[in-house]
Design a protein around this nucleic acid. Sequence first.
DNA 1: ACCTGAACACCGTTCAAGT
DNA 2: ACCTGAACACCGTTCAAGT
Lengths: 252, 252
Amino acid sequence: MTERGEGALPRVLEIAWGLHEPPQRGPARGLDHERIVRAAIEIADRDGLGAVTMKRVAESLGFTTMSLYRYVATKDELLLLMQGSEEAVPPLGPLDDDWRVGLRQWADHVRALYRLHPWLLEVPPSEISVLMPASVALVDAGLGVMLPLRLTDQERMAVILSLTTYASSYVALERDLAAAGQLEFGSDAMRRLGGVITPERFPHLAPLLAGGGYAGAPAEGAGGDVEVEFAFGLDRLLDGLERLHDERAGSG
Amino acid sequence: MTERGEGALPRVLEIAWGLHEPPQRGPARGLDHERIVRAAIEIADRDGLGAVTMKRVAESLGFTTMSLYRYVATKDELLLLMQGSEEAVPPLGPLDDDWRVGLRQWADHVRALYRLHPWLLEVPPSEISVLMPASVALVDAGLGVMLPLRLTDQERMAVILSLTTYASSYVALERDLAAAGQLEFGSDAMRRLGGVITPERFPHLAPLLAGGGYAGAPAEGAGGDVEVEFAFGLDRLLDGLERLHDERAGSG
DNA sequence: ACCTGAACACCGTTCAAGT
DNA sequence: ACCTGAACACCGTTCAAGT
């Protein structure tokens, strides 16, 4: 009964898409997947993914740890439901008709998503997550923006993937820089580091380090720099797309 | 004695760069950081990061769990040492003088690194890791390739970062696709999925899904596709760089 | 069929003890 | 100062029991 043939959808997809019919018989259920996932997301938003334990989630709902296992097979399943929940995704308004502007808006939206829920960066990735509601909605919107571009479906997917990983990586960078800002290496430490990161061994990086243009001295303007770097890399990718598009327009 | 003022380097950097002098007095040490890190990497390579426990690492060296705490303050410190160890990085040969070719070689090398040690994708990121030996060596080489490009230091770092995250993301994708290949949704499952991922709700993605151009049916050619997509995104980024370079060459 | 309390196996880490 | 055994707090998960 639990395994319905080889062609069945993974349980977690059934749950996420609302296809999972609760059992007919027996006492009324005290919980449901939506409440559990929402509670878990709240905890992760507030205290990080490490704070999401089965115990803490259950108790925040007024139940015992073990009650969760009536709704979720393992903790990994819960994490996947969190990641794929549309609950976590802010609504995505209409995107600009100009593909370049639209893609930038789309990338900004993805970045906002990771900023809103930094724990998304830590959820162990699953091959299933691209089929969860949140991902499907995002991908669909992104594909829509690229309609006027002369690209194959596969290339469109590659762009989506590039932008997604690009945005998420930059949120991770922001987080790391924020943490690094509190490191504040003293001149003592920099001298010690300069003793091993020498111009002889690292001719290109050592000058940067000495000049404060590398990690270790991101004291001022760090936030702004990340902003600039995000736009820079994004523009390079869009430039590349435009060049490809122009070439194909010319030859087609 | 353990805290040497505010200007001191983080302990893990001292260890990684070989600046950590072992205590003079007392019995001979049975272990050293290098052996511990190497043992941990071997376990992670073979059985994944989840298999790296203090117990397993210690026992693989013939010691008890607790002995490790003479060398490493916490498990997180051990993970960081693994990640930043040059042990894990295959030697990087000389790169082509043509910046485009060189950057492609560099990106391939980074990708090879993640393929060799997939657990690198799972190590919780630390702001310190960019100062560890492995990262410093990689970044230095990457900066060297970009010497002929008309870019600021900051832009060069942005490129390095983009390529790194790009390469690592693709290795993650490969891994996920390999896992997804064993999912093999049946026609039953696809029909069920098609009931919620409808053309009405997802006009751009639904046709892809129905046509097998999206996850869920990556049975054949999946590996090859990833190869194509990697080159595609990389070329777009390099195209963008070239355009920027050409523009500046013209106006400078 | 739901929810619960007790129990299990397994973590990382602390501490007091031996040498 | 090294290594060890015992112990602690905390996980995820299983199971038998109550309703």
